[in-house]
Design a protein around this nucleic acid. Structure first.
Lengths: 126, 126
DNA sequence: ATCATTGTATTATGTCATTAGTACAATCAG
DNA sequence: CTGATTGTACTAATGACATAATACAATGAT
């Protein structure tokens, strides 16, 4: 029986995603210190080990660097951040359109649907 | 250590996704018989059990129905298919825009980026 | 020096996804 | 009837993910 449809992706992947979004969007500012592993783990209600695993990956890609006892800091490299932001956006667009086309929508249809969606006067609730 | 970044989602979820796309896009025609569990498992190079799990989910949602010894058939219900196709597309758009906005892109920017992407004269290589 | 906080590492445990292998009952072709 | 194919069910083994519970070394504040 299917138990957990919807919790698709592993937690640590979702964490990588979320933290990276905060960095790329500037929620966590360039050069700044991010909350401690334990703090972040607490915020997301996950085990510190899991958070550590996610942050390690962000360090591997150069977005973070650790200073053993003072914390983890976001790269000063603005270019890296902007490059990654652009690339990530491209990727998102690529995945999105690829999937839509697999559902049988043409480029033009995709474009139209998004236009309808984007021009909705929608109240943002968060 | 991170071993399998990129193999994000469980195989059986990807299978649900892929088979459903074939149904919604019409690759597998309405009312028709889909290949046997063992055939599909072979095509996707997965264990029959895993394919079975995926097809069960599609049966649960009403897209497929089984006839014990003759095979699995796609629903005759055109409305169900079109409704699901529409809903799925809406969902894709929702996820896509939500993620893009988390990266700090405005609705207008998203729209523009997609426009650039969709108006590229791109040769499809597959 | 003392103490709290930092990142980091380790071991154990439970759950889930996946594969492998097998089995059975119902249909259809010969 | 015989045999092949269908969906379906079951057990066992393996590996990844996640949590729990520690532990330790380095830094900064007191």
């Amino acid at each position: 029986m299917l138990t957990n449809l919807g919790t698709d992706r592993p937690v640590f992947i979702q964490l990588i995603d979320e933290i990276q979004m905060r960095i790329l969007s500037g929620t966590y500012p360039r050069g700044g210190r991010i909350p401690s592993v334990r703090e972040l783990a607490s915020e997301f209600k996950v085990n510190p080990n899991t958070m550590q695993k996610a942050l390690n990956e962000l360090e591997r890609t150069g977005l973070l660097n650790s200073q053993r006892t003072t914390g983890k800091f976001i790269t000063e490299n603005e270019t890296l951040i902007q490059e990654l932001r652009r690339k990530t956006a491209e990727n998102e667009i690529g995945f999105f359109t690829e999937r839509m086309m697999k559902y049988g929508y043409s480029r033009q249809e995709i474009f139209q649907l998004l236009q309808e969606f984007c021009t909705q006067e929608k109240e943002q609730t968060d």
